[in-house]
Amino acid sequence: MPTLILAALVLMLLGLALPITASYIVAAVTVAPALVQVGLPEPAAHMFTFYYAVLSEVSPPTALSCFAVSAITGGNPFRTMWLTWRYALPAFLVPFLFTLSPTGVNLLWDGPWPGVLLASVTAVAGLAALVAGVAGWVRGPARWPERLLLVGGGLALMYPGSRGDLTGLLLAAAGLVAHLAARRPRAPAPSA
């Protein structure tokens, strides 16, 4: 885990000044071999480096793609950068999904189909719950207890494994049920 966090920071710093292709090429010969040395499968190590090379395009303070979009649309580049970064925050966790666990490589479609399908479905459900909890919106504004349940469930669902999947499913379902129960329209009281 410390190696992955350090690699992510290095890749984000590298991407501040380089376009995606150059950032990946430099990282493929420096960062990816280090990840393989600590036991990561080679496809996962290279996908990790490529993913963070892409995410560096929306990372402050440079966020090259946000400045390009703002120049085309005439928008405020700093506001665009922060809004884009906020929306992309859950995506920064995705590379950790296929690197933290041996079954995580199923997300790269490497392994038996039942494992690939289960890992993909739980990762998407985890991201959806995490985004709903962080954004604070499901079918309307979510309260803090619902948001905490959704974030906890999303994080647990994103970690591969049956224990995490079950815990995440229960937490996310509790947050969703609490939100839907609170938003259900109440019947008007009978008039006397």
Rank of each mutant, 00 (worst) to 15 (best):
A178G: 14
T49D: 03
V54E: 01
W137M: 01
A7W: 13
P188C: 11
A44I: 10
V69D: 10
S162R: 01
V105P: 14
A91K: 05
A17N: 10
A44L: 06
W109R: 09
L93F: 15
L127S: 04
L9E: 03
Y87P: 00
V138Q: 01
G168C: 04
D165V: 13
F67N: 06
L6G: 09
F50C: 08
W144E: 00
V10N: 02
A44D: 11
M12R: 08
A172I: 02
V124R: 08
Y87C: 05
A22D: 06
L117N: 08
G168D: 06
V124F: 06
V134F: 04
L16P: 03
P33R: 04
L166P: 04
G126M: 07
G140Q: 07
L149K: 01
A63I: 00
P160G: 04
A32V: 01
L13G: 14
R79T: 12
M12S: 06
M158A: 12
V124L: 15
P33G: 12
G164E: 03
A187K: 10
S191N: 12
G136V: 00
R79N: 07
W113G: 08
A91T: 06
V94R: 07
V124G: 02
L13P: 08
P41K: 08
L170Y: 04
V58N: 11
G111F: 05
V138S: 03
G136N: 07
I20M: 12
R143V: 00
F98L: 06
D165N: 14
T21R: 13
P160W: 01
G111L: 12
A68Y: 13
A71Q: 13
A28C: 04
V58T: 10
S162Y: 11
S191T: 14
H179L: 00
L127Q: 09
P19Y: 13
R143A: 15
C66L: 03
L100R: 15
G104R: 05
G39C: 11
P2I: 13
L14N: 12
P61G: 08
P61I: 02
A187V: 14
L40R: 10
L108Q: 11
A142G: 01
V58R: 11
L117Y: 05
L55I: 07
Q37H: 10
L18T: 00
E42G: 07
S120C: 06
G115R: 13
L35H: 02
F96A: 03
P77V: 00
F50A: 15
V31A: 10
L169A: 14
A68P: 02
P61A: 14
L9M: 12
